[in-house]
Design a protein around this nucleic acid. Structure first.
Length: 548
RNA sequence: GCGCCACUAGCUCAGUUGGAUAGAGCAUCAGCCUUCUAAGCUGAGGGUCACAGGUUCGAGUCCUGUGUGGCGCGCCA
């Protein structure tokens, strides 16, 4: 984050040059190359184009009009085609470190979203089976995004939308029932055409057999209802325990069925009809999407009387709007991309501001082992469930791996790397940095080494130290950007850089054994790093161990 | 055929609303433990940023086209 006084200084200089209409073009960046200082701006190059003057001359004029506190700015220079580079002083960084230290344990939090409500919907798997790897990525991304918004001050609702009614659940009931009858000895009992073939159906059937014997063998509506309920509870309990392993908790479980029971779906049809956007054709009810800018009309109620997903989805999102959210975030797999425009168009037609809805699409997960795609789990011989993956490599690794790539990129989950309990594994690299810091404080305590956080840190001047402070100042900004872009990976990358900077510092600069004031200053540096690592890891849902 | 996403080092990926000499991890090679945890640090090699045009002082980044891969395109969700 560029210090205020630098920005203000440049704005003043630009105004004094009489070109204040270009003030909004002022941007700063952190140069890749250290030699160019801490912050750079290409404003002179931009002005050169507008004013048709030599960029270096303009840069010189700007610099001539700049007046900074000499204590804070070490050097101003004009380099290359006309970049203005600013190098800050050790006094400046000492001030920054002190400022961060004063923020305490909450460093990184902001009030940016104060008073605003956000709803993050993620996982949302129906209770018809176990969570698989795609759900895992969805869950981790959603939970991180929810955490990020909490950190920037939003009032966050974590929501899970599910459907325990309708055809899919009937299908589940019939699948379990078929397996149950097969287990009872009717080996040829027909399995439903599009039934759930997973191994877990046998497990459920077997459980029912063990608990109730042949009590439910008769194929009646009542009994099928029992199988449905039993299957639903079984699946939901599994899903919840899997999420629990990842420390993921939702505040609201929203049942699609309630939209029907409370007449919300009917209401949406009525409202759309009032707008003249609904018509009947071939015995079905259609939504006239072509009237609101889309390419094709779509069915919302099938000729069988059942609605398609679009209708309850519109009703559901309408409910979210009516509950007063300022921001509605949906986390969806890329296989849902095509469904969203219809739903948004419907909502827009109903008069809602759909710019408040942000849909985050994540690409798929491919499990790799020894350079090959893994389709099946070795232990169970079935496709990998999220459960199995977690018990194999641990929750921390799963959570980190699922967010360490760009949300919109395919994620290659390398089992070999994930199993690796060593420096190769980036999760341990971060945790190790944290544990090392904890260890320094432990050692200091054991040896009775005293330090004082009141001591000035202006003595810190080595590149390893300054680099660490620079990274520390960026933390709040990183959280904001990661939240706004719905991209937890930005935070993961940042933490990795911070850990690297700390490991380098740790290696080159001893803390215990230094003399005052270096001793206290470095302890403060370590303390702040520790806070940031802990906060960052917490947002990612990864534990911060005191010892490794 | 249409839509969305991707294409950057041998592999997996970053690249800050167009900036300076394109970065990191893994893998390979060479160093560093008597001192706070070596799950660490330092260095070396490794690039036609898929391809071709365009926009401009400047393009991995923006525009157009082509190719390759993934996901969609239903009265499934």
């Amino acid at each position: 984050m560029v210090p205020e006084f630098i920005v203000e200084g440049f704005i003043r200089a630009i105004k004094e040059l009489g070109v204040e209409e270009f003030v909004n073009k002022l941007r700063f960046e952190q140069p890749r190359n250290e030699q160019f200082g801490d912050f750079a701006t290409s404003i002179a190059l931009i002005l050169a184009k507008e004013l048709k003057r030599n960029p270096r001359d303009i840069a010189q004029s700007i610099v001539d009009h700049l007046s900074f506190d000499k204590r804070l700015v070490e050097k101003l220079s004009i380099d290359g085609p006309g970049f203005i580079n600013v190098k800050l002083s050790t006094a400046f960084f000492a001030n920054e470190l002190e400022r961060i230290f004063q923020c305490g344990e909450d460093y990184g939090k902001s009030k940016k979203g104060y008073g605003q409500k956000v709803n993050v919907e993620y996982v949302s798997a129906n209770p018809t089976g176990l969570l698989h790897l795609g759900h895992g990525r969805n869950a981790c991304i959603g939970d991180c995004i929810a955490n990020l918004y909490e950190w920037i001050g939003y009032d966050v609702t974590r929501e899970y939308y599910f459907n325990n009614a309708g055809r899919q659940m009937q299908n589940l009931a019939r699948s379990i029932f078929a397996r149950y009858r097969q287990l009872l000895g009717e080996v040829d009992f027909p399995f439903p055409e599009d039934g759930y073939h997973g191994e877990y159906i046998f497990e459920i059937a077997n459980e029912i057999l063990n608990n109730f014997g042949s009590k439910y063998a008769e194929e009646t509506d009542e009994n099928l209802e029992f199988f449905k309920k039993y299957g639903e509870n079984w699946c939901f309990q599994k899903i919840r325990s899997t999420l629990e392993m990842l420390k993921i908790h939702h505040n609201v479980f929203y049942n699609e069925d309630s939209l029907y029971k409370e007449g919300k779906v009917e209401e949406v049809i009525r409202l759309l009809r009032e707008k003249g956007l609904v018509y009947e054709k071939d015995g079905a009810l259609w939504l006239a999407l072509t009237k609101i800018g889309l390419n094709e009309d779509r069915v919302i109620v099938k000729s069988t009387g059942e609605p398609t997903y679009r209708l309850p989805d519109i009703a559901y999102h309408r409910e979210k709007f009516l509950r007063g959210y300022d921001l509605i975030i949906d986390i969806l797999g890329s296989d849902h991309i095509a469904t969203v425009p219809d739903v948004l168009a419907g909502l827009k037609a109903l008069g809602f501001d759909t710019s408040k809805v942000k849909v985050v699409f994540h690409q798929f997960v491919t499990l790799m082992e020894n350079g090959l795609v893994v389709k099946m789990s070795k232990r169970s011989g079935r496709s990998y469930t999220l459960d199995e993956l977690i018990s194999e490599v641990g929750a921390d690794v799963v959570r980190f791996f699922f967010i360490m790539r760009n949300v919109s990129s395919h994620l290659e989950f390398d089992l070999n790397l994930a199993r690796e309990q060593s420096e190769k594994n980036p999760v341990f690299y971060l945790q190790y940095a944290y544990a090392r810091i904890a260890s320094i404080f432990d050692t200091a305590k054991e040896r009775g080494i005293e330090f004082n956080f009141e001591t000035s840190t202006e003595c810190l001047h080595l590149p390893q130290e300054i680099n660490l402070i620079k990274l520390q100042t960026r933390f709040p900004e990183v959280i904001e950007v990661a939240a706004e872009k719905f991209e937890p990976q930005i935070l993961a990358d940042y933490l990795y850089d911070l850990a690297t900077a700390f490991h380098t510092f740790y290696h080159d600069c001893r803390i215990i054994g230094s003399n005052e004031p270096i001793l206290s200053a470095r302890f403060k540096l370590a303390k702040v790093t520790q806070t940031i690592l802990r906060n960052g890891l917490t947002i990612l849902g990864v534990s911060a161990p005191e010892r490794m």
